[in-house]
């Protein structure tokens, strides 16, 4: 467990707190998902609600990876958010944990591909791409996407990437810019 050595107790608490905070904020968005699903289900496009909002749900991982810059922070951040969501009775039961690990690891891959050096648009874009790919592969099986018609798969994939890029990329960048300007980030890893 070499990677665990670089983590301090305060990092673990921080990443868990962020996961729970985001979870608490997301709970206020459930109505968006419910309304969209109900509206799109009659035409067989209910998955779009999931695709549109997935970037939001993957944000804790991407943000944690960007914020803490430690190996495993994206994976752990998303996993913790998912664990908390499962204990609070999310709509996906036990599969929440598997999705959480995969979403987190998907984000992590983007930072791995850029060698944990690019905490800028390049790293965030890479992370958005890898998260889209990994989560989509999982949904081919879990949500039966492999049985869908091809045009719908392409549509879902594009919408999912846009969502990832908007929430995981643009919004994360805006948030971290605010953090940079407030100079709180450096102090987080020196105690």
């Amino acid at each position: 467990m070499k990677w665990a050595k670089s983590w301090y107790l305060s990092d673990v608490i921080l990443i868990a707190l962020i996961g729970i905070f985001f979870g608490a904020i997301f709970m206020g968005t459930n109505y968006v998902y419910d309304v969209l699903t109900a509206a799109l289900a009659p035409v067989g496009l209910a998955g779009l609600a999931n695709e549109l909002l997935l970037g939001l749900w993957c944000m804790p991982g991407m943000l944690a990876g960007y914020l803490l810059r430690l190996k495993g922070s994206a994976t752990l951040g998303e996993l913790l958010a998912a664990t908390v969501e499962m204990f609070f009775g999310g709509q996906w039961g036990i599969s929440t944990l598997i999705s959480g690990v995969l979403q987190g690891f998907g984000s992590e891959l983007g930072y791995i591909a850029t060698r944990y050096k690019h905490y800028d648009w390049l790293g965030l874009t890479a992370s958005a791409i890898t998260t889209t790919l990994v989560t989509f592969a999982w949904d081919l099986a879990k949500n039966g996407y492999f049985k869908l018609q091809f045009w719908l798969l392409v549509l879902y994939f594009i919408v999912r990437f846009i969502s990832m890029f908007f929430f995981g990329g643009v919004l994360t960048k805006l948030i971290t810019d605010l953090l940079d300007r407030s100079h709180v980030l450096k102090s987080t890893h020196n105690n």
Binding site: A41, G44, L45, A46, G47, N50, G89, Q91, G144, L148
Partner: peptide
């Protein structure tokens, strides 16, 4: 709890699935 997503998944396959 899972009724809405379940209906969503059901109708997606039923309308836009293959096989």
């Amino acid at each position: 709890v899972p009724l809405l997503p379940a209906i969503g998944l059901w109708s997606t396959q039923y309308i836009n699935g293959s096989g």
